[in-house]
Design a protein around this nucleic acid. Structure first.
Length: 601
RNA sequence: GGUCUCUUAGCUCAGCUGGAUAGAGCAACGGUUUUCUAAACCGUAGGUCGAAGGUUCGAGUCCUUCAGGGACUACCA
């Protein structure tokens, strides 16, 4: 029996083995390293296609003859091959239906179908989210959170031990800006007194600061200063910088305000994280880690990786690696971003012992991570090779980039609420959920709304930037989360009506597999490979594409074939098992993406 | 200036290590429901894969050049 969770035991590899044997036997070539197999295009008959063009030199025959010879040989040696046909240089192979049916009966009740053996692969640490605490989360953060969560799940399903962490940027000039504004104009306002969610309240003061700052700059420019000078001497920025100095000096009053405001933000973030379904094994705070990394600077100086300039600042020369000279420690001995990141990398390795460490961070920081990894490599760190920047593209709006300070952001909480409202409206308009309790409906609206949002953001290749148009709300039809959820709900409905699944298997001899039925089984068969590929590529998008295709084929199957009303008991059983496995795979794949599925909708 | 990256249907996106006539969804038009949930299914229309060269039996995919977008290139994070 084939071991379906192991890609090595897959039918494709069995076919390849036979093809390699055939090529060796017929033409004395060793194709074991180079052989490839394609899926047969839907315009032709067959399941898999072998392209013979690369072997014509060895066969010294024309494409048709070569393909036919190989096909003939396979027909004798390869039992699972039902038939073959040749079109030009393409050898199309059709597998016996029995093979797919056997696969179905072996797997339809496996709850972990598709998953690799747990902990069979190296441990991985995934860092994601990593927000600043001066403003609420926006659509860009949402993409980050969904990606990080999904990638962690997918890696786990792919057999890795996975840990997740969140490095919160809770200190620095940006927080001081919010603090200064609140101290100036806040009149003691709190989330409770204002009835504003904590992160939004702090964000409000961040915006207020920026407005004031801009006014001051303008005034200074009128007085005759250059813009650059004005930006440096505006009173509000000086005040914020003073706060930062006080913070670093552990000034009691400053620390108190800082703590208070950060706590507001955390309360707000936690609410949003809960709605998004994000989860972290560990939080790191920059206020704890920002001093780390200085020993590494010392280490680097001793090893001659870094050098000191006259003013005491420490640098690394990366010009030979195609980059520039980079500062790693300021002249006054204080850390910069890269200093603390080096320290944090060391700390993470100490905490988790993961040789592979993934950073889910936007592509604007590609340069930074190149530098980080290069430095770690030059220092000979054991974890250096495993540093990987999962760089994702920005979410753009029709008018361009999102800018917090200019108010052109799509706020995460607003967006979530809007999605839930749309889900509620659509559900009510369809009128299928009448008689359900208010509580159940609330859960359903959240499930559907988040399903739409998450699928929308995850289906795009992480590396690519993506467009979000707030004017056109996210669709619930076609290639969307709700369509896939709906497919699931319809399957569940059938299975409810079917009652207890028959424990007895179906008799393969009594079954006629239609084209759609076979397509559906083959699609289900691919799930383990898709998990594997998605884990390798760190791409939830692959899983999205897959589960959409699965839902599409299932819908066609559902439309074309009676299930409960099928008279042939074997055929009916087979279809019910197919329903069981299809719903299981949809649920499982969506769970990896962080999306729930409803039993009814 | 330098480095990186993107450009596929009106719009948003797929297209795995190069393989057959480049695919979905939305939008447009037409059809399907007394039968397991029509958030569905089927069909029509829509393309010089940014441009030009090159490698190859074969290029949306690989290489070069060009055009147009974007990111990065701070003693910011």
């Amino acid at each position: 029996m084939a071991f379906y969770n192991d890609p090595k035991g897959m039918i494709q590899d069995i076919i390849k083995t036979h093809l390699v044997d055939a090529l060796r036997h017929l033409y004395k070539v060793d194709a074991s390293q180079t052989i490839t197999l394609e899926k047969t295009s839907s315009d032709y008959e067959g399941d898999f296609t072998f392209v013979v063009f690369p072997y014509l030199k060895a066969s010294r025959k024309n494409p048709e003859q070569t393909a036919t010879e190989i096909g003939n040989l396979l027909k004798d040696s390869f039992i699972q091959l039902q038939s073959y046909n040749v079109v030009k240089g393409f050898l199309n192979l059709q597998i016996r239906p029995d093979y797919w049916l056997q696969f179905l009966s072996d797997n339809y009740k496996k709850s972990n179908f598709g998953f690799a053996e747990p902990n069979s692969k190296q441990a991985v640490l995934v860092e994601y989210s990593s927000p600043n605490t001066n403003k609420p989360l926006h659509l860009g953060h949402v993409r980050n959170n969904l990606l990080g969560f999904a990638v962690a799940n997918i890696l786990q399903a792919g057999g890795h031990i996975v840990k997740t962490c969140n490095l919160v940027n809770d200190r620095g000039i940006h927080i001081c800006k919010s603090m200064y504004a609140w101290m100036q104009w806040g009149k003691g306002e709190t989330p409770d007194t204002s009835n504003i969610k904590g992160d939004h309240l702090v964000g409000k003061y961040y915006v207020a600061f920026d407005k004031q700052y801009k006014r001051e700059i303008e005034a200074l420019v009128v007085e005759g200063f250059t813009k650059e000078e004005a930006e440096k001497r505006a009173p509000s920025i000086l005040a914020a910088q003073e706060l930062l100095v006080k913070w670093e000096a552990h000034d009691e009053e400053t620390i108190k305000v800082w703590k208070t405001m950060n706590d507001w933000v955390y309360a707000g973030f936690n609410e949003t994280y809960k709605k998004l379904g994000a989860h972290f094994d560990k939080f790191y705070y920059e206020s704890d880690t920002y001093l780390l990394g200085k020993e590494i600077i010392q280490e680097g100086l001793e090893k001659g990786v870094f050098f000191k300039k006259d003013n005491g600042s420490v640098w690394i020369d990366l010009t030979e690696d195609g980059l520039d000279q980079k500062l790693v420690l300021r002249g006054d001995g204080t850390s910069v971003y890269i200093t603390q990141d080096l320290g944090t990398a060391e700390l993470k390795y100490k905490d988790f012992k993961c040789k592979r460490s993934i950073y889910v961070v936007g592509n604007e920081q590609e340069y930074h991570f190149k530098v980080l990894q290069l430095i770690a490599l030059k220092l000979g760190k054991t974890y250096a090779q495993g540093i990987y920047h999962l760089s994702y593209g920005m979410v753009e709006l029709p008018h361009g980039k999102m800018k917090s300070r200019e108010g052109t952001v799509v706020d995460a909480d607003d967006l979530i609420e809007e999605m839930e409202l749309t889900a509620a409206e659509t559900t009510r308009a369809l009128g299928k959920m009448e008689g359900e309790s208010e509580d159940d409906l609330k859960v359903l609206y959240h499930t559907i709304g988040m399903g739409a949002l998450k699928y929308y953001l995850l289906k795009v290749d992480p590396k690519k930037k993506m467009m979000f148009n707030p004017e056109e709300s996210i669709d619930f039809h076609g290639n969307t989360g709700p369509f896939i959820q709906y497919t699931y709900a319809r399957i569940r409905s059938i299975l409810r009506n079917a009652g207890q699944l028959s424990t007895s298997d179906f008799n393969k001899q009594h079954i006629e597999l239609s084209k759609v039925e076979k397509d559906l089984l083959i699609k289900l068969y691919q799930y383990p490979q898709v998990i594997n590929e998605a884990a390798k590529e760190l791409s939830p998008g692959l899983l999205c594409n897959y589960v959409y295709e699965l839902a599409k084929v299932y819908s066609q199957f559902y439309h074309d074939h009676p299930i409960l009303k099928e008279a042939n008991p074997d055929q009916k059983n087979m279809r019910l098992f197919t329903c069981e496995l299809s719903s299981g795979v949809i649920k499982s794949a969506f769970a990896l993406l962080g999306i729930n599925v409803p039993e009814k909708m």
